[in-house]
């Protein structure tokens, strides 16, 4: 098999995941896109393991470790998203601007969340 097939598939899958991470608003959809990117890396690892064919099977072992770490990551990520949802009532990543640079307010995002920003300020001073 030509090596270019798995490599190009992995590249395109990674780009799709990159689009999802940047464009999605719900935090759980962002986590799904992160999973797509991790899977693209795994395809690369398996394909290059077949190409190099070393005795230690480094690529396949690293793929198993990556899958395990991805499972741990999704568990912790979902716990954090649930905690944020419980505290804020929303899991939209562009509303969580408490740690943002206050020097440049984003006007179109301030507009719907005017009361929410006041609430967060009250919560921060409390």
């Amino acid at each position: 098999m030509h090596l270019i097939y798995p490599a190009v598939l992995a590249v395109l899958l990674f780009s799709i995941g990159l689009y999802g991470v940047l464009a999605r608003r719900n935090a759980i959809l962002v986590l799904m896109s992160v999973e797509l990117m991790l899977n693209a890396v795994n395809i690369n690892l398996v394909a290059f393991d077949r190409w190099l064919g070393d005795g230690l099977h480094t690529g396949q072992a690293l793929t198993l470790f990556t899958i395990t770490i991805a499972a741990a990551e999704i568990g912790l990520g979902l716990a954090i998203v649930l905690l944020v949802y419980r505290n804020r009532g929303s899991s939209d990543v562009d509303r969580l601007t408490d740690l943002a640079d206050p020097g440049r307010p984003l006007p179109e995002q301030r507009a719907p969340g005017g009361t929410a920003a006041g609430d967060e300020k009250a919560e921060a001073t409390a």
Partner: peptide, 14 residues
């Protein structure tokens, strides 16, 4: 509102 406003920038980057 599943997609944020910067989806066109995201499309360009991707």
């Amino acid at each position: 509102d599943a997609d944020s406003e910067n989806r066109w920038v995201a499309l360009g980057v991707a």
